[in-house]
Each structure stands twice: as structure tokens, then as C-alpha cells.
Computed example of a mutant assay.
Amino acid sequence: MLFLCSSIRVSMMLLGLLLLAISSLMAASAGNLNQDFAITWGDGRGKMLNNGQLLMLSLDKTSGSGFQSKNQYLFGRFDMQIKLVPGNSAGTVTTFYLSSQGDNHDEIDFEFLGNLSGDPYTLHTNVFSQGKGNREQQFHLWFDPTKNFHTYSILWNSQRIIFLVDNIPIREFQNRESDGIPYPHTQPMKIYSSLWDAEDWATRGGLVKTNWTQAPFNTYYRNFNGKACVVSSNGVSSCDSKTTTSAASDNTWQSQQLDSKGQRYLRWVQKNYMIYNYCTDYKRFSNGRPRECRLYKFH
């Protein structure tokens, strides 16, 4: 009887995840990527397709490719649908992240580490503040991210950062500056994405190398949706403007936090799909774990 009840609970959880994924896919806007992004490197390997409705990054033995946002932001919610390199993608890394500039930069990372055919991708996340990172958490996903597009989101406001996959939270990093823990909240950041070769570390720590007979490797992007505070070149934020903007007219993200359902999904993902958490890596931090790991049960 206990097993039956557990099975029912798991089935209900999976049904809930499916419904959330479907609603996320339906809610994504079909914006023109040309409006928000520019391909910045790759010597033609990055391409805008279908009049800007689709963007492709490509990697071969000579070079990868990448793009960045035309705007810079100070807080926002950023959703992008991505379909990753299929088949034997070992050695490849696809990224989607926010970053400021300079040695003491801030950064919020999604990195997708390629695999041998049949093995799961590793979803790598990290948070940098004032040039300091080392806050890695890694996950496997509950679906094949190469078969269809899925929505990957970064919610960043003054209180917290939440990483979401198909609107399902997988990680939360809270603002604990009052306890001496750096938090990114002063430096505007742009959105970046790239597809590149990292065979020296990406797959099983570099043990599995890139199979160039599979090249070119391609990743696809579509349906970017951003609700954010755009920062102009002279440092003025659209959220401080009296002019009505998309950020001002739909600003729920500015104070958004996980409700009880979101917390349950977060615990479910971390229990079943987290494969690395810097806060539990006692060997790596033998001289003392990061402050947030000692003070809090950090997600």
C-alpha cells in the first residue's frame, strides 16, 4: 500500500511537471531575435534564420560561434527556448548566461555540457559576484534536451536569482549581503550565448574528446522573452523612467519568489536530478566551505 501511494505521488508530480512545461512553451513569445541580439563571432557559423524567428549556432574544428544582447540589463526575467546538439556531442559546451565586464565582473550561468550518445547532458549553473564564482551546481534533466525546444530561464531581482527549466525551479541563490555574502546587484549585464569546444574538461573531466567526424554541431534558439530593466549607455535604467515600459507594466518579476509549490518542485529536482553541489564538496573546500554554505541550507 505504501508503494502504491508513493507511485501515485510520483505520477502526480510528473503530471504537474508536464503541465508546467506545456504552459511554459505556450506562453513563450515568438519575438524576432534580430531585435534583441547580434551574432558577434564565429565567421558566419552563427545564423539568423526564418526572418529572425530562429537562431543557429554552429561549431566545427576551426571555430565555434556566439551572440550577445544589444541591450544591457540590471535585473529581469529572461526566457529562451533552446534545442541542444543531438547525438554524440561530447566535448561541446552550449552556454546561455548574463555577464558584466571587467575583472570584478558579475555573471549568472547556464552551461550545457555535451555527452556521448545515450548519456545525459550535464546542466552546469554558477553565480559570480565581484569576480568570484566557485558556486557550481550541476544537474541532469528529466527529458532529452536535444529532441525538442525547452525553455531555460533566469530570474534575477534584488532579492534572489532563480534558475528555471520549463518554468520549473532548479536552483535559488538569495541575496545575503547583510551576512557578508556578495550578491550581483550593481553591475548591468548583457545576455550572451555560445557554442564552443571544451574537450579538455567538458565531458567526464576531459576523458571523452570531441568526435569531429560528427561536426558541424548545431544548437538552435527561438522565442526569447525578456521582462527587464534596460540600462542605457549613460547608466539610466528603464525601470527608473516615468515612461511606461514592458518592465514597468509587467513587473511581478521584480519581487517574485518561490511559493510553496515552487519550493516543492525545487526540492524534487534537487533530490532526484542534482549531481553536484559546491556546498557539499568538503574535499574541494577542505579549508572551509563558502560562507553561505555554513550559514544556510543553500539551494
Rank of each mutant, 00 (worst) to 15 (best):
Q257L: 01
F149S: 02
G66A: 11
N277E: 05
I191E: 11
D36K: 08
L17V: 12
T94E: 10
A198G: 15
A228G: 08
R171S: 03
R77G: 07
M274H: 04
P86A: 07
G64C: 08
L155T: 04
L15W: 11
F143L: 02
S249Q: 11
Y221A: 03
E172I: 10
S89R: 07
A198N: 15
K132H: 09
D197H: 14
T252R: 12
S100Q: 03
F75A: 09
S11L: 14
N88R: 09
N272D: 06
V231T: 12
K47D: 08
D36V: 11
H299C: 09
V269S: 05
G42C: 08
P86D: 09
L84R: 02
T125L: 10
M48T: 08
S237H: 03
R204V: 04
V269R: 05
E111K: 10
V230D: 02
N32K: 13
C239F: 04
I162D: 04
P188K: 11
G262F: 00
V231E: 02
T219W: 06
Q53F: 05
L84K: 02
V231K: 04
L295M: 14
V230M: 07
W41R: 12
Q263E: 13
S69Q: 04
V10I: 14
A90Q: 06
S23I: 10
L4Q: 10
Y152C: 06
W156K: 03
Q101K: 13
W142M: 07
S99A: 13
L15C: 12
S129M: 02
W268H: 15
L141G: 05
T62C: 00
T146S: 15
P120A: 05
G114R: 04
Y183C: 12
S260H: 08
